[in-house]
Structures are given as structure tokens and as C-alpha cells.
Amino acid sequence: MQLLMFYLIGFFAVLSAVSMIVVRKPLNSALFLILNMICLAGLFALLNAHLIAVLQIIVYAGAIMVLVLFVIMVLNLREKDGDITVRKVAAQFVGIIVVSVVMVMVGASVDPSAISALGSASPEFGTVVGVGKTLFTDYILPFEIVSVLLLAAIIGAVILSKSKV
């Protein structure tokens, strides 16, 4: 059952990711991105990471994507055909080759037995309690660095968007 769910959600995740790149209108891209993020939330939930799954939907599929949609509407982008140059085609070609080589190499060479030998996670793993506990004890340092990072990002947003400095 779990495996079936994984394949189903995984299929839609990949499908929405590809469509997001392929479709022409930015608005449609954004909508596909929301679908992709919801699928990812499903995958997280399957991996027992409940908190991350909920956050993924609230923060990414909810708050951030609303912002993205607003920006797209405000900017009023027009559909425009990009020039297809040799360089662009070559770049896409190389990109596809590199990604598929990496994927095939990773996929073919992973030995599942070695990974299952790492042992299973504790029952608390991924729950709100578990994440909170880890975040505020073992990972307190990165957690605090993130707060500085957000401060820097806020300062940056203010500076770059002020009309007159």
C-alpha cells in the first residue's frame, strides 16, 4: 500500500515538475509548482516526517506561492517566444545528459542492503516533539545561524526595494 502510494505521488511530482518547466504561461508554471509542492508534502508524510509535510503545505504551497502568484499578476508578463540559439539548445542538451547520467549512476549503484544496515529511525522521528527536541538541543547552532540569516535577508529586502536610499 505504502509503495503504491509512493509511486502514485512520485509520478505526479515528476509530472508536475516537468510540466512546470514546459508550459509557456508563468501563471500555469506557478500552479504546477503548487501541485509539485503538495506532492512533495505527500512524500514527506510517507517518510514519517509529518511536521515537514505540514510545513511544506502551509509555508511553501500556501504562503510563498501566493506571493509568487501576486508577483506574476502584478508584473503582467506577456507571452514571448525566446530566441532559440545554438547555445541554448547545446546547454539544454548538456544539462539533460548530465542529469540523466548522475541519476542513472546513483540509481544503479545504490545498494539497498547497505542503507537498511544503517538501522531504522526512532519512533519519535519526524513528529513535532522529535523535531522540536532535536532542533533546540543538538542542532541549536544551525538554528541560531538561520535567525541571523533571516535578519540579513530582511535587511537586504529593505535595501534593495527602497525607492531612494
Partner: peptide, 25 residues
């Protein structure tokens, strides 16, 4: 001493630099 600390350091440094590069608007 941990990949997460290193990555957070990279991001903190980079975000500040992105802004500084565009400072003379």
C-alpha cells in the same frame, strides 16, 4: 564540523554578498 553548519555558513555569507554586490543601486 557538520555539513549542516557548513551549509548554513555558506548561505549566510552568500545572502549578505548578494545584497552587498548590488549596494550602489
Amino acid at each position: 564540523a557538520d555539513l549542516i553548519t557548513i551549509f548554513m555558513g555558506v548561505e549566510l555569507m552568500s545572502i549578505c554578498l548578494y545584497i552587498l554586490a548590488g549596494y550602489t543601486r
